[in-house]
């Protein structure tokens, strides 16, 4: 497994832990109220599990298993895929932490821009690897 896939997938596993922990706290609290404030974790729960876990796992596996190039670097310009790793994680944390910065109402928008940037960068990187094996 290439190093970038290790980073993508291990980071995804960390988000899975965080997302399940936040979800577990909210569900527990729904059954037995311990701290109503835990409901404020809902946006982070969704962001961590949908983008941090599911999407990031898919990006890591795609980088690992898509057909490689027979000429030049086997996985092409890896630095572009690394950029998508940093962008997606910058997007997640910008979005999740934005409620703490009420004086910066544009932060969630910036987070989503980072995430769409990550998607576009990765799609652009992987486009050429979606091909018949050996070509």
């Amino acid at each position: 497994m290439p190093l970038l896939s290790v980073f993508f997938i291990r980071t995804a596993l960390i988000y899975l832990s965080l997302g399940f922990t936040f979800g577990g706290l909210m569900l527990f609290n729904k059954g037995i109220t311990i701290m109503p404030a835990v409901w404020s974790l809902l946006p982070a729960h969704i962001e961590f599990l949908l983008i941090g876990w599911t999407i990031q796992l898919l990006l890591g596996v795609a980088f690992w298993i898509l057909p490689r190039f027979s000429r030049g670097p086997a996985r092409g310009r890896e630095e572009i895929a690394w950029l998508s790793y940093f962008l997606v994680n910058a997007g997640i944390w910008t979005d999740v932490l934005s409620p703490l910065f009420h004086e910066l109402p544009w932060l969630p928008l910036l987070g989503r821009l980072f995430e769409v940037g990550a998607a576009a960068v990765f799609a652009g990187y992987a486009w050429g690897r979606v091909k018949p094996i050996g070509s």
Binding site: T21, G23, G24, F28, G31, I32
Partner: peptide, 9 residues
Amino acid sequence: LAISAILQW
């Protein structure tokens, strides 16, 4: 529901 939360976590 609380037990369900703990098991899934």
